[in-house]
Simulated assay, not measured.
Amino acid sequence: MRLSRVALVPVVFLAVCVLPFAAASPWAALVLLLPLAAAVWVLRVGVDVDDEAITTRGVLGQRRVAWDDLAGIRVVRNARLRLVTRGGGEVRLPVLRARDLPRLAGWSGGRFEVPQPPAA
């Protein structure tokens, strides 16, 4: 799962906005690195799920957690998700939120289930 490519629209808007400032001097052209970095982030960051593991991808690297090494999933502040490994470590899931848990459970092939809220 990746961010929607629609997220590149504000990046293009940012590039257009900083273009006059960047044209002011050769050193000011360095601000064009900001939209470039934002575009790389939108295109690179995400989560891949396959039969063997969950792979989280960041701008500079990736981390692969095998299903056998997964102890659970923790919901932290702002409904963000973290994988909890059997060794006690945590791995951030960059683009997934608590609302994505049912979809992640489906991708896992039944390796975990999402608890349902109690009936009122």
Rank of each mutant, 00 (worst) to 15 (best):
L3R: 08
L8Y: 04
L8N: 03
L8A: 11
V9W: 08
V11A: 03
V12S: 03
V12Y: 04
F13N: 08
L14C: 13
L14Y: 00
A15T: 08
V18H: 00
V18K: 02
P20Y: 03
P20N: 09
F21H: 10
A22G: 09
A22S: 14
S25F: 07
W27K: 01
A28V: 01
A29T: 00
V31Y: 01
V31S: 06
L32P: 06
L32W: 06
P35S: 08
L36K: 01
A37P: 11
A39Q: 07
V40D: 01
V40K: 01
V42N: 04
V42Y: 03
V42A: 04
R44A: 04
V45E: 02
V45G: 06
G46Q: 02
G46K: 07
V47P: 00
V47F: 03
V47I: 13
V49P: 05
V49D: 01
D50C: 07
D51P: 02
D51V: 02
E52F: 03
E52S: 08
T55I: 12
T56I: 07
G58M: 07
G58N: 10
V59N: 08
V59I: 15
L60G: 04
L60K: 00
G61F: 02
Q62C: 02
Q62Y: 11
R63C: 04
R63F: 06
R63S: 10
V65L: 12
A66V: 03
A66H: 11
D68M: 13
L70R: 13
L70K: 13
A71I: 09
R77M: 07
N78Q: 13
A79G: 05
A79R: 15
A79M: 09
A79T: 12
R80F: 09
R80S: 14
R80W: 11
L81D: 09
R82M: 14
L83N: 07
V84M: 14
T85S: 12
T85H: 10
R86L: 13
G87H: 13
G88N: 10
G88S: 12
G89V: 04
E90T: 15
E90L: 07
E90V: 10
V91R: 08
V91F: 09
L93G: 05
L93W: 03
L93D: 03
P94K: 02
P94D: 01
P94L: 05
L96R: 01
L96F: 05
R97T: 14
R99K: 15
R99Y: 08
R99C: 12
D100Q: 06
D100V: 00
L101C: 06
L101F: 06
P102N: 01
R103T: 12
S108E: 11
G109N: 05
G109A: 10
G109H: 09
R111K: 14
F112M: 09
V114A: 00
P115A: 15
Q116S: 13
Q116M: 11
P117G: 08
P118Y: 06
P118V: 11
P118T: 10
